[in-house]
Design a binder for these strands. Structure first.
Ligand SMILES: [Mn+2]
Ligand SMILES: [Mn+2]
Ligand SMILES: [Zn+2]
Ligand SMILES: [Zn+2]
Lengths: 147, 147
DNA sequence: CCAGCAAATGCAACAACTTGCAAGAGCGAG
DNA sequence: CTCGCTCTTGCAAGTTGTTGCATTTGCTGG
């Protein structure tokens, strides 16, 4: 089964109609295997299909996010980032000083969610968190520089 | 000391010049004692000073946020929300189903930050988190309705 | 009080989304 | 295969937020 056919099947299972615009958006994200801004998804899609309108891409990204096929995340700066969601869920530590974006496994975050469930009965939905702060390297550097 | 004078003093301590636009923005947020959208801050400010431009308010909100005098938060839907930061830090649990916004004390969140520090040396900066999910009431309701 | 510099502001253009509406296309029933 | 319902799309206009630049204004030092 080609990637395109897989995407079509995924769309059907999620209750969407299979359209070329949606397939193109999905392929762009799956192929990139990284965080992409809406604008770069638009550019990507338009290389193959120049007629697709911006609003269709924005709407498609929203729909895929609602169906939990992709994540939508606001890192500190710049545009909102979209990413194809693989099975294993992950999160990010974003350094406000040097801009580094490190990966964070789900364990600690799942622990946090469990705390919220135990303490407040709240069923947190943390699919792809971006935690802002200062990374280990930057902390070390500023300490060395006389704090 | 009036609230305005306190605000002026706070501005000076944060290294800003004391201008009427900044004071008006601060007073709007302090007086509201709640989350306000940028647009409603603009409306508020313009009731007193119609000449102040939108961009000045946006820039002021950004500056106050950088100086950690106010929080800037994206709840699931709608505009970005700004809030005057009181001493005691707090967070929110936002129900994606019924829209309820509950308060969350800093304890659980501080525990999460400590985990990140211990496990990754990352110094997380979580001033005013909005955690999305399903609230206790909605979970109970959908369970009762035959899951 | 005054001069001078840097910060702050207004304005207009721009960028990043969002929405209402009419036209087009996927898909299930027959 | 065709019909028709409903989901999707394109387009244009509207929001929300950002930025470059010329001008104004707060503040510091004399
Ligand atoms: Mn990611
Ligand atoms: Mn709050
Ligand atoms: Zn760093
Ligand atoms: Zn709820």
């Amino acid at each position: 089964m080609t990637s395109r056919e897989e995407s079509a099947e995924t769309l059907r299972r999620a209750g969407h109609r299979v359209t070329s615009a949606k397939l193109l958006v999905m392929e762009a994200l799956r192929h990139a295997g990284d965080h992409l801004s809406a604008t770069s998804v638009i550019d990507q899609v338009r290389r193959d299909a120049p007629h697709v309108s911006e609003s269709t891409v924005y709407r498609t990204l929203g729909a895929l996010r609602d169906s939990r096929l992709i994540s939508e995340t606001t890192f500190g700066h710049g545009e909102v980032a979209y990413e194809w969601l693989e099975e294993r869920s992950h999160h990010h530590l974003v350094c406000s000083q040097c801009g580094a974006v490190d990966e964070l496994s789900d364990e600690v975050v799942a622990g946090f969610a469990k705390q919220l469930s135990d303490a407040h009965g709240f069923n947190a939905d943390l699919q792809h968190l971006a935690v802002p702060g200062i990374c280990a390297r930057c902390s070390r550097d500023s300490e060395a520089a006389g704090e």
